[in-house]
Design a protein around this nucleic acid. Structure first.
Lengths: 180, 180
DNA sequence: GAAATTACGTCAGCCATGTTGACATATTTA
DNA sequence: TAAATATGTCAACATGGCTGACGTAATTTC
């Protein structure tokens, strides 16, 4: 039986590529499933605070680099200042983030987390750290094999059977080009 | 100089965890950056068609398993039928997807891609396949080391310097608990 | 064969978070 | 002094999630 974790090239000829088409597609799909579950734990916590993913990102990066400028944050998040403004305002109003005028440049509003902000940030990070550590704590394997394993273990255990079923099933389908 | 690709544990004591806190946080952030860039290529193509990520997912999974039921698609995407209905209707109206009455169960509306649908799906998948293959085509390394390498190479080359700078800088900051 | 369940569609409205464009203000730099 | 920079804000719009409600056709169950 096909195994979502193993990386056998039982699909098309690899040509001069390191991975067969089927293997590569499986990794694309694992990227989707893994990311979906990766953000699911923080999402749930955020809901209790009336926040969303955008708030999480701000909390995380400000906590990582206290005193960063608004522009630096914009560069990292790659969103518009209007989008940032909305969530930043909420975080400031609810006292998770505060701003300080820059000393060297008084136009700047340097960003910091309050105690509550740092607490929440840690709370949000916990499940993701656990998930990463569990996923990475794996023996052996070559690059693709290992990457696949890691992504698979990023999926929530409750979803792994469904994901494994899908990947196995899809592998058997062999990338059909038409339907009907 | 710190290296975003190497996985030295120069941070806190790992305790009984396989990864230091800093290493784990770096992987969390790489997950964010990698996924952001991973979906950027298809996003751009989708824009030309007036579609979004939701359309991409439907195209992808229907193309992978032609003849799947609406319910199966919902189970994979884990969204509501109302959300799916919106994008599915557009894909059908614009002739990228069509439905066929189930033979065994005539309540079912089995999903298939049209020729245009399969073409678009392939076009969307191309850049992601390339990105995965480039990222996975790496020598050596243990699990965490390799996973980090892979995720780093999932980031667009144009963004790698910024991501590397961030990760390096953040590593030096050493997870401060307060700001102010 | 009637009743319940299933598969699907749809209408209406709400929310989060992205976008563009325009404009204001304070501060720093040239 | 003029120009550029850092930031904030208002308004409008798009995407894609969500809930709740309702309808229809087909299948399954009692």
């Amino acid at each position: 039986m096909a195994d979502v974790i193993s990386a056998q090239d039982n699909g098309k000829a690899p040509g001069d590529h390191p991975l067969s088409e089927q293997e590569t597609v499986a990794l694309i799909e694992l990227m989707f499933f893994a990311y979906r579950d990766f953000v699911s734990d923080p999402d749930e916590i955020l809901g209790q605070y009336g926040f969303g993913r955008a708030h999480h990102r701000v909390l995380h990066f400000v906590g990582r680099d206290p005193g960063m400028t608004v522009q630096q944050l914009l560069d990292i998040l790659q969103i518009t200042k209007q989008s940032l403004g909305r969530v930043l305002k909420e975080l400031i109003d609810k006292d998770y983030v505060f701003q300080k005028e820059g000393e060297a440049d008084r136009r700047q509003r340097l960003l910091y987390l309050t105690e509550s902000g740092e607490e929440l940030r840690q709370r949000l990070m916990g499940p993701q750290m656990n998930r990463i550590r569990r996923a990475v704590a794996l023996p052996d394997g070559s690059a693709a094999h290992l990457y696949r394993k890691v992504l698979y273990h990023m999926v929530s255990p409750a979803n792994r059977e469904a994901v494994r079923d899908w990947i196995d099933r899809a592998s058997l389908l062999g990338e059909p080009k038409d339907g009907g």
